[in-house]
Write a protein that binds this DNA or RNA. Structure first.
Lengths: 208, 208
DNA sequence: GTACGCTTGAAACGATCGTTTGAATAGGAT
DNA sequence: ATCCTATTCAAACGATCGTTTCAAGCGTAC
């Protein structure tokens, strides 16, 4: 076998997406990869390290792309809400499309891991979103001065919920798929609802 | 033990929410419930039946409530978009609050199972949402004639994504919790963004 | 008391889990 | 050819999984 390590990662991506982390055994992975059981612990050390390696390669670049786009925007001047949201959403759509081309089931797995909110995932997504939330929160605040920081954070989390749902690729009966191959069109469609959703006047809650 | 069956359900709810279905063993469940291992298979037949029993008691009433509210609305006349969305969201918020009072971790577990999109879950949520999507889709279509049925279904799924995210109770660092105890206030907050999000013109080009 | 359904108990079932071991193999550098 | 490092392999490790078995306990009707 010339490239056992890569074959294992590919097989694990598919099986994790299909049956979850706990629902996938190393024997399934290595059988699909055409490798030996011991190869996982040899190349990765443990099953958990294999998971982290898969997740990191997906999650980290998304937020890196977000920050690059936002930096560019703020360097050019004061961005409006549509530009900020585009910088937030475009990395998701591009990554979603790329992941699908590489492995059709991978985005769903990432969405599952995100929504599991377990102790394994919390440091991975927590530290990532801390910077993202602060940077985009203040960018939105300057574009929409009528909203409080708390309300902006709340609405941003709603958008995160939509994005995770996009990644989950849940296609309910009678509904078409949420995103397609045309990233520009998907972005337009998302901005068409997220911009009004973010711009809407606040009915803020006092008792929280 | 006077009520072993109930104790098992309660323990399973907590542990499933914490560690997932595959991540929870029957021995953990029965130990927490103060029951014997064999009690699970005696009362439920299998671990999978125990899961289905827990999910059914949560998911089915939500959509039943939705349909009752929508029936009431349509019986009174032609509902506007805000009323329809209220009928869609209110059962979620009420159920979310109730579930939290009963078991703080239960909503997160439901959200996890929803987003897993596995073969076990598909019949449970699929058949449920088929009626819901059709009924609410047509109700929204009469309230918003400028939107195509396909666009309505797509936006409705975005709202489902937000709701699942609410249930997941993911609290990112630096952000407050998404919903509280004041259901009326939470509903107002959700309607403040979902009504503009649903009403927005289709594929709008620019907001300046 | 005796007999009978319902429920619980301890123990073991076969299967599978993630991990480890140590020998066998390959392929280049010297 | 010889050595060395990297990788693969079959096999087994102890642990834990969901499930089953069957005896013991329980309250109620006879």
């Amino acid at each position: 076998m010339v490239n056992t390590r890569e074959q294992i990662v590919d097989a694990a991506e598919v099986l994790f997406a299909e049956n979850g982390y706990n629902g996938t055994s190393l024997r399934q992975i290595t059988e699909r990869a055409g490798a030996n059981i011991a190869a996982v612990n040899y190349h990765f050390g443990s099953k958990e390290n294999l998971l982290i390696e898969i997740l990191d390669r997906v999650v980290v670049p998304i937020n890196a792309r977000r920050l690059v786009l936002l930096d560019d925007l703020e360097h050019q001047g004061k961005p409006d809400i549509r530009q900020v949201l585009e910088a937030f959403l475009l990395p998701d759509l591009r990554t979603l499309k790329e992941l699908r081309q590489r492995n059709q089931a991978l985005p769903r797995f990432v969405a599952r891991m995100y929504s599991e909110n377990t102790e394994l995932m919390r440091p991975i997504m927590g530290q990532q979103f801390e910077t993202i939330g602060r940077r985009f929160g203040s960018a939105i605040a300057t574009a929409l001065p009528h909203l409080s920081a708390e309300e902006i954070g709340w609405r941003l989390q709603c958008i995160v919920g939509i994005v995770i749902y996009l990644f989950a690729s849940i296609t309910l009966p009678g509904a078409s798929s949420m995103v397609g191959d045309n990233t520009e069109a998907d972005l337009e469609r998302l901005l068409a609802i997220t911009v009004p959703m973010m711009t809407a006047p606040s009915r803020e809650v006092a008792t929280r």
